[in-house]
Simulated scan of single mutants.
Amino acid sequence: MTQDQISGRGWADQAVALIEADQRRSADTHLLKLETGFRGVDLYLKDESTHPTGSLKHRLARSLFLYALVNRKIREGVAVVEASSGSTAVSEAYFARMIGVPFYAVMPKSTSAEKIATIEHYGGRCHFVAPGVSLYEEAARLAESLGGHYIDQFTHAERATDWRGNNNIAESIFDQLAREQHPVPRWIVMSAGTGGTTATIGRYIRYKRLATRLLGVDPEFSAFFDGYAGNDRAATCEKPSRIEGIGRPRVEPSFIPEVIDEMVRVPDKAALGAMRALSHHLGRRVGGSTGSNMFALCWKAAEMIRNGEQGSLVSLICDSGERYSRTYYAQGWLADCGLDCAQSEADIEAFFATGILETPLQSARQD
């Protein structure tokens, strides 16, 4: 081994050590049990908003950086590029600053000022593209022009995380439920952005031979549900998702439909109504993807109650609602989008008290 190779290995070793030390300093996220007016079916939310960068994507970004480092894709001075205007870019900027490499987020010009400011706070640089330009292709082009690495969350999310354990989110959920009345949940409910988290949870359930089933959630404008229902990886959606962090225009490579037992499509007004109802219930704001999870969780819990079943269900608080004060929590924005979520908010509030939710959802199951 040459001196240059030794020097490069030393930098990578130090970078991995910095990221692992950060993980050890971070306590596991809380598993919250919701207070409801019914018995026999318990609802839990794992609060991923408490990560240092404020979202579930902190786990993904950590895994992506470690994966790229051990595969020698990120080296000293090499720029890291990502196609993301949301929470993934925020978290990746955090880890890039930690190990001292430049970070570029390729994003639409319409990205909110709050997201841009947060990425730049961590030292990231925002590279804007016009409508109609492929974020994927532009990120790959920019990385090549910089001599950098396109970290590509949409391809690598499902392989960067150790789905067998090693403190992944699935292992954490089951550890935290161990002393509860129903320690093995009937359902885990999870929306898809890259598909990496559903892949991790679904694989872990099968690896541990658990009776839990996985309910996938997709927003109104996204290709995942159609791809799942029609067994069509070429499915697309022309309209961009209005629920940040989840939903994609194509079926991403990291989306593994085979590990999902059932999938539902949650209308945006239902998701944002559930978001507001849950925020009121908790006394603090949550984001829109959490609302999608919450509506699907309540829908499945209501089905269990109607069928006389008992057990527990788990989903995630993906991020805080403070990032969405100018969108999901702004009446003007909702009006501009033609979204009236008042009825859905009232329906979820009533569900918390009664366990009754009659709203139908479009659903599909694996054979």
Rank of each mutant, 00 (worst) to 15 (best):
A223P: 01
P219T: 10
R323H: 10
D218Q: 02
F224D: 00
D261M: 05
Y324W: 09
I317C: 13
L334V: 15
H280E: 15
P240I: 08
G273I: 11
R233F: 13
S279A: 14
P257F: 08
R276L: 12
K300G: 05
M263S: 10
P257D: 06
G287T: 06
G283M: 07
G230T: 05
E262W: 00
G332R: 10
E258D: 04
G216Y: 07
S315I: 12
G216I: 06
V259S: 05
G288N: 12
A271Q: 08
A229W: 05
L339G: 00
E244R: 09
E244T: 10
A229Y: 02
V259E: 00
F255G: 10
R323Q: 08
G247F: 08
G283A: 09
I305G: 00
S315P: 12
G227E: 05
G338Y: 14
L272G: 04
K269H: 13
L297A: 03
A271T: 13
G230F: 03
D336Q: 15
S222W: 02
C318Y: 15
R284N: 09
V251C: 11
C337K: 15
L282T: 15
G227L: 00
C337H: 14
S325Q: 14
S279W: 09
A234R: 11
K300E: 10
S320C: 08
E309F: 03
E309W: 05
L272E: 04
H280V: 14
R306N: 00
F295P: 06
C298T: 11
R285P: 00
G338V: 13
S254F: 11
M304F: 03
P253A: 07
S241T: 13
K239R: 11
V251I: 07
R242Q: 09
C318A: 15
G332H: 11
Y329V: 07
A335G: 04
K300C: 04
Y228T: 05
E238L: 06
W333T: 12
R306T: 00
K239H: 05
I260K: 01
E262L: 06
S325A: 14
A277T: 12
G216P: 02
D268H: 08
S325D: 09
K300S: 10
K300T: 04
R323Y: 09
C298N: 01
A301E: 08
R265D: 03
G308D: 04
L316S: 05
D268P: 02
N231M: 08
K269L: 09
D261P: 00
N231W: 04
I246D: 08
G308L: 07
S254R: 11
P240A: 06
M263E: 08
S325E: 13
A271I: 13
A335P: 08
R284I: 03
L316V: 14
A277N: 12
R233K: 14
S289M: 02
R326H: 11
A301W: 03
L297S: 01
C318F: 14
F255R: 04
N293L: 06
D232G: 01
S279C: 10
V266F: 07
P253G: 06
I256T: 14
S292N: 07
W299N: 04
M263K: 04
S241M: 00
L313Y: 01
G287L: 05
S315H: 13
A274P: 12
S320T: 15
G338T: 11
P249A: 01
R306C: 01
R276H: 15
S222A: 15
D319S: 14
F295A: 02
A235N: 00
A270E: 15
G321W: 03
D336T: 14
G338E: 14
G291N: 08
